[in-house]
Design a protein around this nucleic acid. Structure first.
Length: 479
DNA sequence: CGCTAGCGATACTC
DNA sequence: ACTCGTCGCTAGCG
């Protein structure tokens, strides 16, 4: 998933923070990750169709952690699937079915612990489970959206437009989608590692100084992403070095063709170039839902070519009409079939409701939230939260908890500019030098035979040239 | 020596 | 044809 090895390589520019840093701000959450983690403890029940609310409890536990810190969660779900990911999806499906079969056999032969192991490997987050969670969120008054397709693009859109201040996720694709601030690896105490786009130039291991957004994206795609496997023998480090030296994909491919270390044929690279462009366009122009206008938009607007001479853009998926979009993206219709869901609560949602009701009995939730002392958070090397668990949030029907009188200090904190960050200038100034202004070849200039390399370059540039037609407004829009 | 790619152990717990 | 794992270790490549 995502860009292999990217998060590991970006650790040095990340900052360990607690989610409470986002107090009084909206934060968008990649809900799939939380759902998936919550499924592991009830994998056997889920595989056998036994109703359970454990996965909902897991997610709501974290939602309540955020609300305890006065952080406003906006939950984002995945929508339909893209044809580009079809092969890998079918592979996963086969693995899941195999693991479920194995688990059932072990269960029948009485080996429960080994069966559990295989059930956990077979965990499958279904749209029905997502729907059960959405019903719960609606009852609890938590805002949420279903992305038209990938949640990553939707999350990045919300962050890039300022609808939310940050994103909580595990997926390195948010870097490729240029989400300005992402909190990774958040644990049950709210501790995680925040990665900011503007801090990438300060990264130690892999240095992105003087990289344009397109160069960062080129690095990500070449390293291998969901939409396109990397070229054999080339992963993150090599991709980064190539982009640093040659900047554009067409130059890189021409260099690779001449490089004797790799034995890429012209056919290989021309085919790759075409798929690369699709991947690039998918990252740039992914369909998203705009919550303000309640319409479908492109993450970055498509270049306005009169008459769509561009060829097909079907890899972006289908652009749904506004009525359908509102039903799907606001959680009232199935993102695959567009069928309206029943308003009847699912078994799992009912189960959660009865459990949380029991926990709440005898206490007024509103009072609890208001009275929860913020210093129930102790700092002992690691922060710990001790007392918010019993404090479920008020249901949607109840009036919102009365806002605590805001002191001058709190208000100032809310309005204070974001933590000091380096100037983004370096990300924007990159002006492309002449075509393929190679500073240095991968191999020594001595091994490279200039004449044949040059001929190939001239011949192929015609094919690689298609790569340049994609204007990327994203470069200038979000710095 | 740097790097890629594959492997096994691992997940969760109010 | 009805939603994505990840981490650390290492063999083996150039």
């Amino acid at each position: 998933m995502g860009i292999q090895g990217l998060l590991q390589a970006l650790k040095s520019s990340g900052q360990p923070i607690n989610v409470s840093e986002y107090k009084n701000q909206k934060v968008a959450i990649d809900t799939y990750g939380w759902l998936h983690k919550g499924c592991i403890q009830c994998a056997a029940e889920l595989a056998q169709g036994i109703p359970t609310a454990k996965y909902i409890q897991f997610v709501m536990h974290r939602v309540n952690l955020l609300r305890h810190f006065k952080v406003i969660p906006v939950m984002v779900f995945d929508g339909g699937f893209l044809p580009m990911k079809k092969e890998t999806e079918e592979e996963r499906r086969r693995n899941r079915e195999h693991n479920v079969q194995k688990a059932m056999e072990l269960l029948r032969s009485g080996n429960r612990s080994q069966a559990e192991d295989f059930f956990q490997r077979a965990v499958d987050v279904t749209p029905l489970m997502a729907h059960s969670l959405m019903q719960t969120l609606r009852e609890e008054g938590v805002e949420f959206f279903v992305a038209p397709y990938e949640a990553d693009a939707q999350l990045a859109y919300l962050a890039r437009t300022g609808y939310v201040s940050a994103v909580i996720s595990e997926d390195s694709d948010l870097i490729a989608y240029q989400s300005p601030r992402v909190l990774y690896k958040m644990d049950k105490f709210g501790n995680g590692l925040e990665i900011q786009m503007v801090r990438l130039p300060m990264n130690k291991d892999l240095n992105f100084n003087h990289f344009t957004p397109t160069m960062i994206l080129t690095t990500c795609i070449m390293a291998g992403c969901d939409y396109l496997p990397g070229l054999p023998g080339i992963a993150l480090k090599t991709a980064h070095r190539l982009v640093k030296q040659y900047r554009s994909i067409e130059c890189i491919l021409q260099i690779l063709l001449a490089e004797s270390k790799y034995s890429f044929t012209p056919q290989d690279l021309v085919a790759y170039a075409s798929k690369f462009q699709q991947a690039m366009r998918t990252f740039h122009h992914h369909y998203v839902y705009d919550p303000t206008t309640r319409t479908i938009q492109n993450l970055t607007p498509c270049p306005d070519t009169e008459g769509h001479v561009e060829g097909d853009w079907d890899f972006l998926g289908h652009r749904m009409d506004t009525a359908t979009a509102r039903s799907v993206c606001e959680g009232y219709a199935n993102p695959y079939t567009y069928e309206l869901y029943s308003t009847e609560p699912t078994a799992d949602a009912r189960l959660y409701r009865s459990h949380s009701g029991r926990r709440l009995s005898g206490q007024d939730p509103r009072e609890s939230v208001a009275a929860a002392p913020l210093n129930s958070v102790e700092l002992m090397g690691q922060r710990k939260v001790t007392s918010f668990f019993s404090l479920a949030a008020p249901p949607a029907v109840a009036p919102a908890a009365p806002a605590l009188p805001q002191s001058q200090a709190t208000r100032a904190e809310f309005k204070a500019p974001r933590p000091k960050s380096p100037e983004a200038g370096d990300l924007a100034l990159a002006t492309a030098p002449g075509p393929c202004g190679a500073k240095r070849l991968i191999s020594d200039a001595a091994d490279a035979e200039p004449a044949p390399a040059k001929r190939k370059r001239v011949r192929l540039s015609r094919y690689f040239a298609v790569l340049q037609d994609d204007t990327s407004p994203g470069n200038a829009e979000f710095d």
